[in-house]
Every structure is written in structure tokens, then in C-alpha cells.
Design a binder for these strands. Structure first.
Lengths: 347, 347
DNA sequence: TTCTGGCATGGAAACGATACCACACAAGAC
DNA sequence: GTCTTGTGTGGTATCGTTTCCATGCCAGAA
């Protein structure tokens, strides 16, 4: 096999072009203060040799790495993959690369990932904290000399910037909508209760129910199809079966829907359904499922924008305004489809 | 605001511990040939200072970057996000980070991304080529001293390793299945015809149709709901309306299904539907949609494994066996649900 | 005693880029 | 004529690691 050419260095170019390294450096950084002829000559040599600057060397010399770290629970989840896509776009617009790591919501994995990213000296960090309350995480992020923006879940009691949804208000809106439809026995279905987002949504549900003087019914055992089936069957066979379901997340909504469908329970006639977080086929399925929609793409975008803002005025004198950390709370939107009892016009 | 502590360096640790830099270096690299007492002392200092090695410096000194580049068309697409997730897992198992870039299938963006990644000197590259036939891409990849594995689409006429699906055979299986059901006028719906995967699937469709002495009907105008509606309406209003649809990709399948549903055309009674590539809710919609399933996660995993194999025996003497590039072709699987006319047992 | 060899350790030269400083030279101001 | 000013250029220290080589030391062999 032919030996592949190793990467030529700046000195190679310099020697080949008969100039000093300084000049070559100037050429690749815009070519200011370089004689036009020299410039052209050096450029030609660069082209011929296929020279590409070594980022590691640049980084070492004190410049930035031109990378940001992204720490998310999962890529397969459409919510996070949309965030990631948006963040990546902003990074690229800022001439930076994204180092992607996934945590599966495991704090240990999260710490390992952060450790790796810090060793790589990413210029900034975008993180969906596995545990919003983790003392260790908070300490690490406060200690390390790297700008951080938390996504989807804040890092509590910390001065870390964050971009999250108003889960509380969203859940109120959703629950209230079911109440407005006249449902009295609304059950809140969930599979988690440690995650910040889920807790906020449950809090919103409770708030709306209490305001309407209705009893809260919460089942947090729904983790997959099996457990959803068991939960729903038990509920329906109980003394006072629910007439509506508020599902606190995507997968819960889908599992609940599958169960109702398999059991041939008409939605919304026998039981209504409203989920938190929209998904691609929510409008295709019969009946179309009403949801509280989050501005998914905007979350990722805003977070990345804030991060790069921080990076920018970290260079110069930080403007006093941006001194205390940004805490963005984005609003959700109720999408009325049929599963809640609405009869939306077919678009 | 309190000034955040900058990163301490190896020399800081050395000074603080009263040893030479060499010793500290040995400690952080396993601590062999270091006096146990010294080892403990240095470790304590490292802990106290929160020292973390600077990857840029390590890289510069000739070691690898401990990163691989991932170049994919999109993250939001579940197919690619699953690939990415699998690849990321393998990378992490090899103590490496993934630099994520997305191309939107645009060759220009692809070249820009590759350029950036090469500047960062990623140890290897995982790429879903936007254009399998691009001469420029082939040249770049062959020239650059970086191991590359192509995913989902091979780089034609090149010695680049690849992991792809047997799209051709998969499409034959799917089409043949429709033929076996007795459908005669099977239309192939697609929205692309430049992508390698789609072309292969169309080729498979044609092959199966020709073997059965049936006429090929191909409509490659389906890009969104609107165009799908137009295409299907035209087809149905035509002189000999189709009795089955073979959709060449995920989004096409979904759009076709939505149109049929909106038009109240019973599936599979009036027209059958079979898609290429599975998706989460395919079994939840009514009727459940039959598909040709790809081993999504395996594609990403295998590709990453092959890449790290290459990285490994690049260090030592490359074994003659692995000399010529690996070309893996993974088999697809027909999932019989109801939309093709099958009556699968409800699991 | 002197030599050999293994251990624990440190000095200093790389790696590839940047940037401070210096220098040479030309053109105009006085 | 000297003094400034600006332009084009290069030498070289530097960033934080690794690694080659050298050193000092002690145990056991000769």
C-alpha cells in the first residue's frame, strides 16, 4: 500500500516558500501586512502541500479549542436530538465543533463525560443535567473555568445560566383544558418522579386540580407498555375510574395511547388523553392526540446562543448587564387535536 | 464576581509536590516505576489542585486526539440519530469523544465539515457521504492520513471501508411480498433519486417487478404531505389505479399513509402499503404498517468498531488480513404488520 | 573492592502554532 | 542631513505535555 502523506506543518510551508514561519502564520490568518506577491506565493505552496493548520497547536498557544461540549441524556429521543441539531447549527455558525456525549440520565456517566470534556478544554458546555440537585455537579461546574448553559433542567441553587420550558404553567394549561372539557377524574400518568421537568409538570397538574377542587390521582408506575397496561387496567377497574389522562411525557403518552387502543377503549368518548411534549405522528394517529408543545428547537438554539455570547464577552470586558446569569424560561403551547374532546378543523 | 481558577498545569503539580515533571507525567499515566510514597503524594496534590491533563498538549506531543469525527445528514432523523448514538457508545468505550457535524446532504457543507474535522486532527472519521460518487470527496478521503468508515452509503470506486444495508435485496423482498399478496399494480413512491440508498431500493423494486413480469410505476415527486397528496390523487384518478404502494423511505411512507387516511381510503383493502425503514409508531397506527426494517443500531455500532480496529492496528504493524478495506453489507428484515394485507397475530 | 543492573528520578528537547520584539528599508517632514 | 512613520519580514520564546537520556543510588555478583 502507498504510504499516506502525513500532515505538513507550518514550517514545511515556510521552508518551501522561502519565508519565515511568521509570514506563513500571517497568511493563514487573513494575510494582512503581507506583500501581495509573497501572499500569493505562500498561498500557492499551502495549496500544493494541502496544508491545514493543526488545531491542537493553536489551542496550546492560548487560543480557544473552537469546540463546545454537549451533554445530553440520549440522542435517539427526538426532543434531545432536535435540541442537539439546533445547538450544532449555532456552533457551526460560530466556527466551532460540537463534542457529543450521552449520559442516559446517569449521574456517574455524566461526571465521566464532563471529566473527558474538561480534559479536552472545550470552550463551553451545554448540559442537560441528569440530576438538577446534584451537589457534586454544581461544585464541578462552579469550580471549573468554563462557561456553562443548562438545557431543559436548571442546576438548582447555582449561578449557572439555563434555558428551560415553563413546565409548571404548561401542565396547568393542559390540566385546566381537560377540566374545562368537564372531566372530573383526571389521572396524571408518569414514569419518573426524580427528573426536574416531570416534577414541575406534576406540580402544575396538582395546582390546577386543587384550584378546581378536584382530587389528584397520580400513578407514577408507567415505564413501558406492560406497566402502562397494568396501571390503566387497575385504574379502570377501580371504584371510580378516571375519565381523562394527563401524561407527563412523550413515551408515557404513547404507551397510554397504545394500551387504550389495544383495549378498544374509545378516545375521547370513554376516556380523554392529553400529553406533554409533541411528537411527529401525534396528528396522524386516530384520534389525533392533543398535547402541550414545547419549543424544542428554540431551546437548543437559545442555549447555544447564550453560550457563545458568554464566550464572546469573556474575551473583552464583560458587560455588567450580562454579569448575572441568564435564566430563560420558554412558554409552551396547547395543541388541540381530538383526543382531549376537541373537534379541531382538519387543516 | 470571584475569579474562577484557571487550569493548573503539570508543572504546577510538580512544583507543589516537590518532584520533576517527568514523575508527575508518570503518575497520571498509570504510575509505573514510581515510588509508592511519591505516587501517593503526587496523587494527593493532583486531587487538591483539581489538576486535569491538557489534551491539546498531549495531542501535540504526538499522541492521538482521542476524538473521532461523525458526519451525518441530520440528527433529527431517527435513523441517523440511532446510528450516532451507537457510534458514540463505541467511541466512549474506546475513551474517545465524538465530534458531531451535520451536512443536510449538502456536498458543500460536507466538505466544510470535513475540513474543520481534519484541522482538529480527529483520529478517525465516520461519514454518511452526501454524494457517494463525488470525486472531490473520494480524493480528499484518500489523500488525508485518517482512517475513514462510510456509513449507510459507500464511497464508490474507492478503497474506503463501509457499512451499509443490502437495500437492493431488501427492496426485492418487500416488493416480492406485495406481489405474493396478489397485487399487480404496485407503485414505487419516492422523493429522491440521487441518494445511493434510494437508488438501490428502486433497483430492487424494478428487479422484483420485472421478474414477475409486472409493469414498473415510479413516482419520485413525493417530498412532503402536499406532493404526496397530489401524486396519490393523480395515480388513483389515472387509467389504471395502483393497488399497492412501495414507499422507499420513512418520511415517504408516513406522508403516503397520512394522505390515504385523510382521503378515507381503506388500507389495505383499497390499496396496500409497505415502507422501507421502520419507525416507532408504525405498529401503533391503524392499520399497523408493514416495513422493511434495517438494523439501524448495528450499522452505527459496526462502523465505529471497524474504525477503532483500524486505529488500533495502525499503531502496531497492520495485519495483512485487515489490509484491504472492510465492506460490510447488513441484511434487512421484513416486518409483517397489517398494511400489506397480512393479518399478524397481535402480540 | 569494583562492576553490573535495576530502580527512582529529573533535565531538557521536542510537538506546531502564535506573537512579541527587532530590524531593514523607503518615503516624506523638518 | 536626521527624524519620524509605516511596511514587510524573520528570530525566538512560549503554550503543556511526553520522552529520550542521564544521574544517583543500592543490592548483589565478580
Amino acid at each position: 500500500m502507498k504510504k499516506k502523506t502525513l500532515h505538513p506543518t507550518l514550517s514545511h510551508v515556510a521552508r518551501e516558500a522561502g519565508v519565515g514561519t511568521t509570514t506563513v502564520s500571517r497568511v493563514i490568518n487573513g494575510g494582512h501586512r503581507v506583500n501581495p506577491e509573497t501572499l500569493a506565493r505562500v498561498r500557492r505552496v499551502i495549496e500544493r502541500l494541502g496544508y491545514m493548520p493543526n488545531q491542537a497547536a493553536r489551542t496550546l498557544k492560548g487560543h480557544r479549542t473552537k469546540t463546545i461540549g454537549l451533554v445530553i441524556p440520549s440522542i435517539a429521543d427526538p426532543f434531545f436530538s432536535s435540541c442537539a441539531e439546533a445547538a450544532q447549527a449555532i456552533a457551526r455558525a460560530n466556527d466551532s465543533l460540537v463534542m457529543l456525549t450521552v449520559t442516559s440520565n446517569d449521574p456517574r456517566t455524566e461526571m465521566e463525560n464532563l471529566d473527558l470534556l474538561i480534559r479536552h478544554r472545550t470552550d463551553g458546555l451545554l448540559i442537560v443535567p441528569a440530576n438538577s440537585q446534584s451537589q457534586i455537579l454544581r461544585d464541578l461546574l462552579e469550580r471549573v473555568a468554563v462557561p456553562v448553559v443548562a438545557i431543559d433542567r436548571p442546576v438548582s441553587d447555582s449561578s449557572i445560566a439555563s434555558v428551560v420550558c415553563d413546565n409548571f404553567k404548561g401542565a396547568i394549561t393542559g390540566t385546566q383544558h381537560l377540566i374545562d372539557h368537564g372531566y372530573k377524574r383526571i389521572v396524571c400518568l408518569t414514569g419518573e418522579s426524580t427528573l426536574y421537568t416531570i416534577r414541575e409538570r406534576m406540580r402544575g397538574y396538582r395546582k390546577a386540580m386543587e384550584q378546581a377542587k378536584l382530587n389528584c390521582i397520580i400513578d407514577s408506575s408507567v415505564k413501558d407498555y406492560k406497566s402502562a397496561e397494568y396501571a390503566i387496567k387497575s385504574l379502570l377497574d377501580g371504584p371510580s375510574p378516571p375519565d381523562a389522562i394527563f401524561a407527563t411525557k412523550n413515551s408515557t403518552t404513547i404507551h397510554a395511547f397504545e394500551v387504550l387502543q389495544r383495549l378498544n377503549i374509545p378516545v375521547p368518548q370513554s376516556i380523554a388523553l392529553l400529553g406533554f411534549d409533541d411528537f411527529e405522528l401525534a396528528s396522524t394517529v386516530r384520534p389525533p392526540i392533543s398535547v402541550i408543545q414545547q419549543p424544542v428547537e428554540e431551546i437548543g438554539r437559545r442555549a447555544a446562543e447564550i453560550l457563545f455570547d458568554q464566550l464572546l464577552d469573556e474575551r473583552g470586558a464583560a458587560s455588567p448587564a450580562s454579569r448575572h446569569p441568564v435564566q430563560v424560561k420558554l412558554q409552551t403551547r396547547l395543541i388541540q387535536r381530538a383526543s382531549c374532546g376537541c373537534t379541531p378543523p382538519t387543516p
